[in-house]
Amino acid sequence: MELVSMFIAAVLINNIVLTKFLGMCPFLGVSKKMSSAVGMGVAVIFVIFGASLISYALYYLVLVPLHLEYMQLITFILVIASFVQFVEMVIKKYSPSLYKALGVYLPLITTNCTVLYVAQQNITEQYSLIETIVNSIAVPAGFLMVLVIFAAIRERLESADIPECFKGNPIALVCAATMALAFSAFAGLV
């Protein structure tokens, strides 16, 4: 039950984009089309899940026994960058259709601070392995949900009659702020 609460909290209450303001670059840059938003969101789930598990294992199996905890930041950055390169290579070689759908978003994810945040959070909150797995799926799932909602709003904004000075990113940021306010109503849900 606690894991379910944790999942709901990570998706709705402590949403990474709307409460921590992380991952704003893809949130604004890749939210104009629904198909792009879904592709980016799925790729982020895959990369965060894989990179978090590897980071978790490296921290507890290598860094802690060798008393090198102070190297966790550089370790996690290199793990994320290496994992993205590896995933891109494998997808290129074995699944061209998947590469066509997700490949273009993989390099963008390397610079997505959400990935590093989740890897760090799993360590600083001292999560167990099962909690790490749940958190590594829930946080990017929240990112995907918000990205899809935001893409739907932006698609409708394209045909809306709005003042010239608000077109583009200004109205998108107003919508993001309104979404953040709406999501704050979930506080206290679990």
Binding site: C25, V104, N169
Partner: peptide
């Protein structure tokens, strides 16, 4: 292949 990224200020 190109991402449909409009670009932020980075």
């Amino acid at each position: 292949l190109k991402a449909d990224c409009e670009g932020c200020k980075v």
